[in-house]
Design a protein around this nucleic acid. Sequence first.
RNA 1: GGAGCCGUAGUGUAGUGGUUUAACAUGCCGGCCUGUCACGCCGGUGAUCGCGGGUUCGAAUCCCGUCGGCUCCGCCA
Length: 594
Amino acid sequence: MKDEGQRGFIPMEWQKRTKYCGEVSVKDAGKEVVLNGWVNSRRDHGGLIFLDLRDRTGVVQVVINPDNKDSFPLAQRVRSEYVLAVSGKVSKRPKGTENENIATGQVEVETSALQLISKSKALPFELDEADKVDERTRLQYRYLDLRRPAGYMALELRHKVVQRVRNFLNNQGFLEIETPDLTKSTPEGARDFLVPSRLQAGHFYALPQSPQLFKQILMVAGFEKYYQLARCFRDEDLRADRQPEHTQIDLEMSFVKKDDVINLSEQLLAETFLEIGQKIEVPLKRMCYGDAIKYYGNDKPDTRFDLLLSDVSDIFTKSEFKVFANVIKNGGVIKGLKIDKASSLTRKKFDEYTDYCRGLGAGGLVWMVIDNEIKSPVAKFLSAAEKKSLINSFEANPGDVIFLVADKTEVVNQVLGSFRLLLAEEFKLIKPGFHLLTVIDFPMFEYDEEEKRLKSHHHPFTMPTEDSLDLLDKDPLLASANAYDFIINGVEVGGGSLRIFDPKLQEKIFGLLGIAKQEANDKFGFLLKALDYGAPPHGGVAFGLDRLVMLLAGRQSIRDVIAFPKTQAGTDLMTNAPDIVSDKQLKELRLKTE
RNA sequence: GGAGCCGUAGUGUAGUGGUUUAACAUGCCGGCCUGUCACGCCGGUGAUCGCGGGUUCGAAUCCCGUCGGCUCCGCCA
């Protein structure tokens, strides 16, 4: 068997596989097969060479005997990750040489012909140790990273989840419809990615943050049930669970009530969990937004563990302890959480926690070790009655530790909400498995301190509840929305709402958001216009496919379930995007760079 | 915009009370080996310690800056 021919190229003809490596079994014993794949490893015994040949289905052992005068010399020159075609006979392995660790360990392929299809340089990292390798090297050589079973399986799972979603929605009567990626920049929401227009010099498309407006217009168009696996773009900073482009399972339905959308969403989620063999009971547990904030400090409660926040402001309304009293006088709150049997915590650890909470914006962190009495730096400032009330309130027992934060309500919730996660991890309180939750009863608006105006909590097209209509004028911050979020293990995987289908109400909401009539018409005029032509009641939901698959795959980052993800600085280390472009390109677009 | 952690042969680590031939494992190259499967054994190759500057007789080690990667805050309707 030759490798490189006269022209210096490897011959183009090669034997096509008759079987996949991972599927060779005892049943094939005695049969001739051809395998194609990569050399996973090579074990050269001098007089006998073993190769583990790998394709996407698995590995199988290939044996090359020295009496095979064509193949043996080639086998000696073969290296890791060479691509080969192997012809040979499947045989049961000699007694005592079976390998229980691999699926094909009972058999091997006795090579009759070995053919080199493609060579490989020595790899920049060893595939079976990739878990430990710096992520930047793996991203640079993403094709090698993905060649690992773990890489393959993550994307295979993603594929299967997508197929389930499509099947489920198709069976429910949904139509998959694509909407534009080159569209119009709209105010509100995230920063847009812009695309300069050549034909309309000086004008810009924006990449969609979501297909929100298009799907609503599809409802006006009468499609009734739409879905799409939509790529969404947001030019904001990245996180482990945030990429500048991500994929949403986006859907919208007409003539539905809130519970119709929630029920379908929960069924859809449950359907995806079947892919990993998990039966999820629907309907899911539901929690109102107010309780989520009150007990968990945020609107995406991690319900894998308790450690609930408790408001103890009442105990300190008349406290001699000025720090607490002042916070309450200024409208703030004192909340805390109790952790069982934590008296082994060191002073150093308490300082660490204090720094952590300060870093999140708290003025400080009060800690108390419960013994026969309370041990705490602030114990001397508290009255006996206050101490007793605290212990009662937290139902604290000797050995427990109480942490308190006093500040503005939002600060307290945010700090304790994060701190609770840290403690749960450190004390190993997190129960295994998946804990799904639907959060309902969101407020319509929140107040933006910086811009001194109302902002939508969900988005500007969210339908207020009927009860809230009167509040829009009186006290819009109390108005609640027909919106819902879906939370798994503290990760927001989806959310949606009923939409406004009355153009008058939509204009009213824009007004409350401080979007002038002129601007509303410039930016959203096409939607308002569409609503004028017989808009059905409608609502929908969007799930973050990347986050969902991340959870199903048990990974910590969505980068693991995206084929070619970007770094925290928004770069692609494999392609080196983003990159500078030629002057010619800039000129055509009438763009100048500094 | 901000905070923290990290950066030493291809890869993963060790080495920082200032002076080392910068160590170990693995990979890679060569040799031996007919039942291995993380094959084994022998030998070899490979790092001016991310980059720049400073302190010093002397810096991988201390200081400053910078670049890159990760985590987080802000931001993400």
